[in-house]
């Protein structure tokens, strides 16, 4: 298996080179460069700007600039500096936002699994009943539901009309950092976006769990357990669920990747300062060092997530061979 992992990691190198080249040259087509916005509305001599351009290497051939960018990333993990937001290093900015996205993603995952596993099991156990039909209907609806529409309606209902939850941001800035109230305020801000994301994210888990359990109900080991007199509840919790959870385990890889990539739609609607919102802001302000770094990072994380998922699957079920 290690051979496979190494090979998959090696394949990742040309893949990332390709993406980095694509985003780099695409962003060169955007108006503005690393010096735009530095002087703001100040009246600076064109001569000085030209000298600075020369100094920063902005007049070098594109290929050379690209090489320097990649080299900086590989050797020093340096993605350059932002064009707006006070020319801070891109990595600082991303790191700051990532903490918010990770919090949101963890709570989303908790809600998602807490909702999906019972629903999947119930649907399978009561197959064909009204409860099962209702759960299946919910998965169909959640599959078709555009994220934007659900998020807006949730925000409108629970944020604006009922005022149960705050309508924007990640924390109440007036509170003292580190205090208990600060912590509670964070959670309070997180609940609505994470429930919205979780409601839509359960579909795949419920569907897989339900069909896996229904398949397992007729398998030999269940018949054996039944004939031994194992109570039905125990059969489900101890025997069936363990086997049926396999495909869900492989999804954990993507879930881990999703922790860091954030959600563009959810974060934008709930004005939640995470990675997704950072991407949208960086694009609208033409801050391409940030957007380039984010695309590259997301692509890398998705690829790693897929790899981790495959490896996890072989760990849980040694019969599966990753090729």
């Amino acid at each position: 298996m290690w051979k496979t992992v190494v090979r998959r990691l090696l394949i990742l190198i040309p893949q990332l080179l390709f993406i980095s080249a694509a985003v780099f040259f695409m962003s060169q087509a955007m108006p503005g460069d690393a010096l735009t916005g530095v002087f703001g509305e100040m009246d600076v001599d064109a001569q000085i700007i030209e000298e600075l351009r020369e100094e920063f290497g902005l007049n070098d051939p594109l290929l050379q600039q690209y090489g320097r960018w990649v080299w900086g990333i590989v050797t020093e993990f340096d993605f350059g500096r932002t064009l707006t937001q006070g020319r801070r290093p891109v990595t600082d900015l991303i790191g700051e936002r990532m903490a918010n996205s990770v919090r949101l993603a963890i709570l989303t995952l908790i809600f998602q699994y807490a909702l999906a596993i019972p629903l999947g099991v119930i649907a399978a156990r009561r197959r064909g009943t009204v409860i099962d039909k209702a759960i299946v209907l919910y998965t169909f609806a959640a599959m078709a539901m555009p994220t934007i529409v659900l998020a807006l309606l949730m925000l409108f209902t629970f944020g604006f009309n009922l005022s149960w939850f705050p309508i924007r941001g990640s924390v109440d800035v007036l509170l003292e950092t580190g205090s208990f109230a600060y912590f509670i305020s964070r959670i309070h801000h997180l609940i609505l976006p994470s429930i919205t994301a979780a409601l839509l994210g359960t579909v795949f888990i419920i569907n897989i769990l339900r069909s896996e359990i229904i398949d397992a109900q007729n398998s030999d080991y269940v018949t054996t357990a039944r004939s031994k007199g194992v109570p039905a509840g125990r059969i489900y919790s101890k025997h069936i669920l363990r086997n049926s959870a396999l495909p869900i385990v492989s999804m954990l890889g993507f879930a881990v990747a999703g922790l860091f990539t954030g959600s563009i739609f959810i974060e934008t609607i709930f004005s939640y300062p995470g990675i997704g919102q950072l991407f949208v802001t960086s694009i609208t302000t033409r801050d391409f060092p940030v957007s380039n770094a984010l695309v590259l990072m997301t692509a890398f994380l998705i690829a790693m997530g897929a790899l981790i998922g495959d490896v996890l699957l072989t760990v849980v079920d040694p019969r599966i061979r990753v090729r």
């Binding site: 893949q15 390709f18 993406i19 694509a22 985003v23 695409m26 962003s27 087509a29 955007m30 990539t261 563009i264 991407f279 949208v280 694009i283 033409r286 957007s291 984010l294 695309v295 997301t298 692509a299 998705i302 690829a303 897929a306």
Partner: peptide, 18 residues
């Protein structure tokens, strides 16, 4: 496989801006 691993929402947005 390679292409479908791209964060395509981000890339569509990038294209649209350009």
């Amino acid at each position: 496989d390679t292409v479908s691993m791209l964060p395509f929402l981000m890339i569509i947005i990038l294209f649209i801006v350009i």
